[in-house]
C-alpha cells in the first residue's frame, strides 16, 4: 500500500492506495466522499466526472497514484461556503435538471468545466459539451436549460419538451 496525498476541495487529504486504486475509489472509499458516482465504470457515462487541476476527468479512468499531489474538486466542493447550493446546483434544482439524480454530480462538474472555459455557451455548445455525460432518465432538456440558466442567460424561450 502507498499513501497518496492530494488536495480535495481545498483540503489536504491522504489515503492508502494500491497501484490499481482508481481516483473514484480513492474519493469514495478512501475519503468517504460518495457524491462522486460510479455509473458504468467504463468511462462512458460521465457520472464520475471530477476536476483535476481544473480539468474535467472521468475519475473511474484515472489511477489515484497518477494524480498524487493534484488539486481535485468534486461535487462536495460545489456548494457555497455557508452550505447553500452553488449557482449551477441551484439552477439544476430551479429548472428540474434532475430526475433520479444519479448522473447529476457528473453533469454539474462537466457544466462547471464548460462554464469556466465558455461563460455564455449556446444551447448547441452545452449539448455538445455534455455528450460524455449520460442521463438514463433522458432528462436532457432540463439539464441543458439549467446549465444555460446557470450561465446567466434567459431560458424562458427554451422548450421543456
Amino acid at each position: 500500500m502507498t499513501k497518496v496525498s492530494m488536495t480535495v476541495n481545498g483540503r489536504a487529504v491522504s489515503a492508502e492506495t494500491e497501484g490499481r486504486t482508481l481516483l473514484s475509489a480513492y474519493l469514495r472509499e478512501g475519503l468517504r466522499l460518495t457524491g462522486t458516482h460510479v455509473g458504468c465504470d467504463t468511462s462512458q457515462c460521465g457520472a464520475c466526472v471530477v476536476h483535476v487541476d481544473g480539468k474535467p476527468v472521468k475519475s473511474c479512468t484515472v489511477f489515484a497514484q497518477d494524480v498524487a499531489g493534484a488539486d481535485v474538486r468534486t461535487i462536495e466542493g460545489m456548494a457555497n461556503a455557508d452550505g447553500s447550493l452553488g449557482v449551477i446546483q441551484q439552477a439544476f434544482q430551479d429548472h428540474h435538471g434532475l430526475q433520479c439524480g444519479f448522473c447529476t454530480p457528473g453533469m454539474v462538474m462537466s457544466a462547471a468545466a464548460l462554464l469556466a472555459e465558455n461563460p455564455k455557451p449556446t444551447e448547441h455548445e452545452v449539448r455538445h459539451y455534455l455528450e460524455g455525460n449520460i442521463c438514463r432518465c433522458t432528462g436532457y432538456h432540463n439539464i441543458v436549460k439549467a446549465v444555460m440558466a446557470a450561465s446567466g442567460q434567459d431560458v424562458s424561450a427554451l422548450a421543456a419538451e
Binding site: 474535467p56 476527468v57 479512468t61 460524455g132
Partner: peptide, 9 residues
C-alpha cells in the same frame, strides 16, 4: 476525439 473529459487525459 471522445468527449471533454476524455480529451483532458
Amino acid at each position: 476525439i471522445g468527449d471533454p473529459a476524455v480529451r483532458s487525459k
